[in-house]
Amino acid sequence: MHIPDGIISTTAAIGGYAAAGGMTWLSLYKIKQKYGNPRNGIPRAALLTAAFFAASLIHIPIPPVSVHLVFSGLLGVVLGWFAFPAVLVGLLLQAVMFQHGGLTTLGVNACLMGLPALMAHRLFCLRSLFGRRKPLPNAILAFLAAFSAVAAGAIMAALLLIYATPAYFDAAAEKTAVLTLSFAHLPVALLEGTFTAMVVLFLLRVQPTLLEADQK
């Protein structure tokens, strides 16, 4: 899901930066509007950025490919509007430290993981329809939110990669490889869904206020 430098066209990279810039502005605006003093939300955001940063280093071998955890759904569920800036910072650190992703594709990657995170947040907000403190709806929505965040990210990345294969590479072979990789994200989505549901159940029991990203 992390697109490295030199894989997509310059136009796509610039478009990604524009979209990510707009989304960051919107997120910061919403944070200011909702929380007033953003300092209160920063410790949580920083810790989940650390989790997001470390998650990409945990590889899960699913032959014939190797995929890694993303945690975009978890970030969305717990952080709300803080998720997009958190993803952006996490991706910047991954790109600078490990060449995982790239600086020119930072905008595109931020959209590929940040937008599903915000979508997961909206999905998790539906819990107000079922009772905010009831464990079962919370767990189910958390699972669905994280599952769909990984799936949406994988689908968006696949479409972008198939669309943006340079002419000198064999497009058909690359398409097959991209599709194989996308399907390999299915177990990751299931795993992250389960993990996020467990985190939500745990937080619901010990510190429910941490899940109130949609309130305040």
Partner: peptide, 9 residues
Amino acid sequence: VRLAGHGDL
């Protein structure tokens, strides 16, 4: 080198 959108230069 490129495989399924992964790769490096």
